[in-house]
């Protein structure tokens, strides 16, 4: 689905490379954890996949096409196939839960009828149907992240990119969120999660790509969800 070939990234004004010669492939339907210390390059990798940044060198391809060569319209269509989940949730505080999720459909021109149908379904999947009229400030961290996930999945994206999605929630909620991601993945969506939560990573037994100082130092594929502590 997405391949990185010798991808490096240097931020303007920095002498250090945030990513160095990264080569990897994310297949359709895969569940990938990006792990590593702060500054290892996990978030940079996610942003490159979203094409928020362009690589300083190397090539990223999506279904065989170089992301750097996408036209404005192609980039827009590509991004609409991706759902983003953030550590700080990035919910709009003046909008209700329903409106926040609906926003993802409104910005791409869905009709009010389709929004009225899709949003409750997404909220039901994340277990927040009964809170759809609440505002973000009235929700716990875990609930806010569920709204973030509902917003990311409501358009049924091909790929979900999540940057430290459990960083601001307690361990119980973190596990539930990871289980939610696993369920979404089982329905066919490719998922790439950057995280520090090694216990979650161990428990979900999915592919793990470990980064250190911008380089991949480990890439392990494992067999799937484990129920053992």
């Amino acid at each position: 689905m997405i391949s990185l070939n010798e991808v490096s990234k240097r931020y303007p004004g920095s002498r250090e490379l945030a990513l160095q010669s990264v080569t990897m492939t994310v297949g359709s339907g895969e569940f990938v954890f990006l792990v590593g210390q702060s500054g290892a390059g996990k978030s940079t990798l996610l942003r490159l996949l979203f094409r928020e940044y362009l690589p300083s060198s190397g090539v990223i391809t999506y279904r065989g096409r170089n992301l750097a060569r996408f036209s404005g319209g192609e980039l827009l269509r590509y991004r609409r196939k991706i759902g983003m989940v953030f550590q700080d949730f990035r919910l709009l505080k003046q909008k209700t839960v329903f409106e926040n999720v609906a926003f993802a459909l409104e910005v791409v021109g869905h009709s009010p009828q389709s929004i009225r149908k899709s949003v409750p379904a997404a909220l039901e999947e994340v277990g927040l149907l009964d809170r759809m009229l609440a505002f973000p400030a009235e929700l716990s961290g875990g609930e806010q992240q569920r709204v973030g996930i509902a917003r990311a999945m409501v358009r049924k994206p091909q790929l979900i990119l999540a940057d430290e999605p459990t960083g601001n929630v307690d361990p119980d909620n973190a596990l539930q969120l990871m289980e939610l991601f696993a369920a979404i993945n089982r329905a066919g969506t490719t998922i790439v999660i950057a995280t520090h939560a090694s216990d979650m990573v161990d428990r979900l037994r999915q592919r793990v790509v470990q980064l250190e100082r911008g380089r991949i130092i480990r890439d392990v594929k494992r067999g799937g969800y484990s129920n053992e502590p």
Partner: peptide, 10 residues
């Protein structure tokens, strides 16, 4: 912030 979210949502 809203503009940023809109960009992320495509």
């Amino acid at each position: 912030e809203e503009i940023g979210v809109m960009k992320y949502l495509g």
